[in-house]
Simulated scan of single mutants.
Amino acid sequence: MGRGVLLTSNLPQLQNLIKRDPPAYKEEFLQQWNHYNSIRQIFQINPDENAQHFRELVSFIAQVAQCYPKETADFPSQISTLLLENYGTLSPDTRRSLVQNLVMLRNKDVITSITYVLRLV
């Protein structure tokens, strides 16, 4: 098994490595980013399917978003839109996870309070 296979199956380890050296792990991040986008599309159709895995990917991306601002520029709005459009059908765990990750992005100055408020209005 190569480095990529080991890291893509261990998001916490990959998260720590990315925080230490973002350029060295950009390819592994992009694999996870593409995977997140695929799972997000499935999740929008059926919010119960792969919910735990989806929450894990969202948390991972939120943790490292500041390392790849260009690639993750749309991430906060994607999460806000998911919350707004599917609030009633999302499980409480998924709603809580999405809100917590938006708050974390705000605390890390990835998004501003104004951006966050405007998206939720």
Rank of each mutant, 00 (worst) to 15 (best):
V99I: 15
Q63I: 00
L82K: 09
S97T: 13
E56M: 07
F54I: 01
L84I: 14
S91W: 01
T72D: 04
E27W: 15
L82A: 01
T89K: 07
M104E: 13
D74M: 10
L98A: 12
L90H: 01
L102C: 13
Y25N: 09
A65H: 04
Y25A: 08
S9G: 09
D93L: 06
D48V: 03
D48F: 02
T72E: 06
L7R: 01
L105R: 09
D93K: 01
K70P: 03
F75C: 03
L102R: 06
A51E: 15
F43N: 09
V5K: 15
L30I: 13
Q78H: 12
N37R: 13
Q52R: 08
R20S: 10
R20N: 07
C67W: 02
S59R: 05
T8G: 00
E71A: 11
N10G: 04
L98W: 10
L98N: 08
F75A: 04
P92R: 00
C67S: 13
I18E: 03
I42H: 14
S77L: 10
L7Q: 02
P92Q: 02
Q100E: 12
A62C: 08
A73S: 11
L11F: 12
L102P: 14
I42A: 10
N10Y: 03
L105D: 15
F29Q: 03
T81M: 05
P12I: 00
R96A: 10
D21L: 07
F54N: 01
R96E: 11
G88R: 14
L11Q: 06
S80L: 14
A24R: 11
R40M: 13
Q31E: 11
D21G: 05
W33I: 05
F43S: 06
V99L: 14
Q66M: 06
Q63Y: 03
L11S: 08
P12D: 01
M104S: 15
I39D: 10
A24M: 13
T72V: 07
Q66L: 08
N37K: 12
R20F: 06
N50L: 09
R95S: 07
I45H: 12
H35T: 13
A62M: 04
L57K: 04
I45F: 10
L90N: 01
P69R: 01
E56V: 04
K26S: 06
H35K: 15
Q66W: 02
F54L: 00
M104T: 15
S38I: 13
L11A: 05
D21V: 09
P69I: 09
P76H: 06
A51S: 12
T8V: 10
Q100I: 07
F54R: 01
F54P: 03
F29Y: 06
Q63N: 14
Q44V: 10
G88C: 13
H53N: 02
S59W: 08
Y25V: 03
S59G: 14
I42Y: 13
